[in-house]
Nucleic acid binder design. Structure first.
Lengths: 128, 128
DNA sequence: TTGACATTTCGTTTTATGGCGAAATATAGA
DNA sequence: TCTATATTTCGCCATAAAACGAAATGTCAA
């Protein structure tokens, strides 16, 4: 029950669902997810922590960057694996999901340094 | 996204998960669910409303009694059907789930009038 | 070593949720 | 019709969750 509940609670927020969807086959760095969601870094960090504790994503630190990916079915519990499959199927053709996927495709063309630079720029300009 | 989120949010509470599990193959009346969960009728009513709006249960009024059951796959969306299947599989062998199932088996041996009488008795005794 | 910077942690605020009891609603039976 | 009763609605309170900004952490590069 505890694991099941951790999974459903992790899935019960739009930002987290969008994150899972957009991570998909990719290996994204946190700054790309921040950019896609349009939320504060601290907020996104918390969301990722919740997803990670439920086993729905795997994070790997590489230098200053943290990479996020979905677990393969052989490294996740059946519950996690099933939940991810269900989510994929349920969001098939969803508008928001498709918009996010398109946005991500754009982001993948830009070096992550550039993305981070944008975020710093945005932060500074709002404090002026 | 909206439907998906309604489902995951409905599943993100232990009382609601336990309800779905215990309804299972049965056609329960609300008073039986109240008894099983040990929560106030008003609270259970709200939970059932959330489950119902997500399409995870179907309620049918019959006289004074309201009966609750799971939708058949042919009358529910694929998302709902898949979510219920996932839930069943994930809670396979869960301790709480088994305890609830046992308790329900007991409750099914008692006429529902008796269950309601108990609830009224309990309410009165706590106000004395 | 120092500075830049990607990410997390912490503290705070606002909003959502789950719980209850009291009152309302609707129906069966006297 | 009147009463008992199964369930829902409403209003309230306590707690949990999501958001942010500021400060802390850890790592690369000059």
């Amino acid at each position: 029950m505890k694991e099941t509940l951790a999974i459903t609670r992790a899935l019960s927020d739009p930002a987290r669902i969008r994150t899972l969807l957009v991570v998909g086959e990719n290996d994204l760095c946190v700054c790309q997810i921040i950019e896609m969601l349009g939320l504060a870094p601290s907020t996104v960090s918390k969301h990722l922590q919740i997803l990670s504790q439920a086993g729905l994503v795997i994070t790997r630190k590489e230098g200053r960057w943290v990479h996020v990916r979905l677990p393969r079915c052989d490294e996740a519990s059946p519950a996690v694996c099933g939940a991810l499959a269900w989510l994929r199927a349920s969001l098939e053709g969803d508008q928001q999901a498709e918009a996010d996927t398109r946005q991500l495709a754009q982001l993948l063309c830009i070096p992550r340094e550039e993305i981070s630079r944008r975020q710093i720029e945005r932060m500074r300009s709002c404090c002026r």
